[in-house]
Write a protein that binds this DNA or RNA. Structure first.
Lengths: 229, 229
DNA sequence: TAGTGGTCTAGACCACGAT
DNA sequence: TCGTGGTCTAGACCACTAC
């Protein structure tokens, strides 16, 4: 038998699906599987690591590899530039600045950004358009302590979304998703009734030195997020 | 210098962040980096593969490894059992069946399940409770062609969510997320006003032989999805 | 203490795709 | 054609943890 790590992983999935390897059971150790498949231990390790990342098995030193009792699924979503998202759908992208000012941030915002009372925060609101129609409302706080250059940028031509992405790499990102009724400002910007259900994505972005930006993106009614394959 | 693959990956992230490796630029090939870091090519490969999975670089044979122009972020969410989700939050879990019947499915449902006109479909609706209060409304179609045992199950004591998870492993899952106004049935079950914004998660689950189940889970007002770290 | 997975090495061949 | 990443091998040492 000739086996690559992908086919070994697939065979493992099949055995789990057929209950040859039952939920909760410990499967044979890598060395034994390597002998069975006629592969090296490294190849088997690669395959089992893939199954572990997919949530099918749990691996622990000494304990061995056990089939997960409740295969916890995972779904991954892309977090693209809004411009790229719109243009990727074959629509014309547009952007309009609504508001830009240095302002006192609510305590919750400072805390989530890890910004001390000393560092200023910039608030930028804007509207993303697709084919001229409102697409998403962006309400952003930028930590000027982490990105002082933002002071010199008006964000009238280029959205903060795009400006930051091109200039400030991040190292970690936290994403919350919720359904919320449109507030007054969002309803006006998006052209929907107040209270209309909006898909709201909140992202906190951090660099090596701390919080960079916190953004709330409210998508117009009907918007869908689709998981990556 | 002694380096494991994790520290090599971290060094790569730092170089990208510092723009030593600029966006769009091609970084040195694995063999060169291996010499630089005093590691074997296999170790460097492992590190760069990790950076590629995180979206920092794009790798292609012959072309080499390029730093991504727009570091497309990815956010991963767990798709757990609702019971596990509720109990994990330290709340008491409950379940109530609302409806169970074999029914004609809309064409859209059949298509997404890849179910022919011949195979019957079972519809199960239920309500998940946390501390006795409505938590999420589940509206599910089960492909009896793929899971004939479901005919003999009443789903009165155990939710379809849990029954399927324990019995039918899946191989692929597609997830859609949207904000939608509560319909009449959902509003009644969840005890909210009709039109209230609900976070709706639609999952299509497939096994090796085809579609298994399509479920629409409407979470009560205020629910949040949080990305995994 | 011993069994298991985690990782590293040095070398090899292959698949892809620009030239 | 040939440089690049993708993968496999056989062997080795280490880290964790049940016993």
């Amino acid at each position: 038998m000739r086996h690559g790590w992908r086919s070994i992983a697939e065979e493992g999935r099949q055995r789990i699906f057929r209950r040859d390897w039952a939920p909760g059971a410990t499967i044979p150790p890598e060395a034994r599987l390597a002998a069975e498949f006629g592969a090296s231990r490294g190849t088997v390790n690669r395959a089992l690591r893939a199954l572990a990342e997919e949530g099918w098995v749990e691996r622990r030193r000494r304990l061995g590899t056990r089939v997960a009792l409740h295969p916890v699924g995972r779904a991954t979503f892309a977090v693209p530039l809004i411009r790229a998202e719109v243009e990727g759908a074959g629509r014309a992208y547009g952007y309009r600045l609504i508001e830009r000012r240095e302002a006192e941030a609510p305590e919750a915002v400072r805390r989530r950004l890890g910004a001390g009372a000393a560092s200023g925060l910039l608030r930028v609101r804007g509207l993303h358009l697709a084919d001229g129609a409102p697409y998403a409302h962006e309400d952003r706080w930028i930590n000027l302590g982490a990105v002082p250059e933002a002071r010199g940028e008006g964000f009238a031509q280029v959205s903060a979304n795009e400006w930051l992405s091109a200039r400030v790499p991040f190292t970690a990102m936290e994403v919350h998703v919720a359904a919320e009724p449109a507030g007054a400002a969002e309803a006006e910007a998006l052209g929907c009734g107040p209270g209309a259900p909006l898909l709201v994505v909140e992202r906190t972005t951090r660099g090596p030195v701390g919080g960079i930006t916190l953004v709330r993106i409210a998508h117009g009614p009907g918007h869908r997020m689709r998981s990556l394959p």
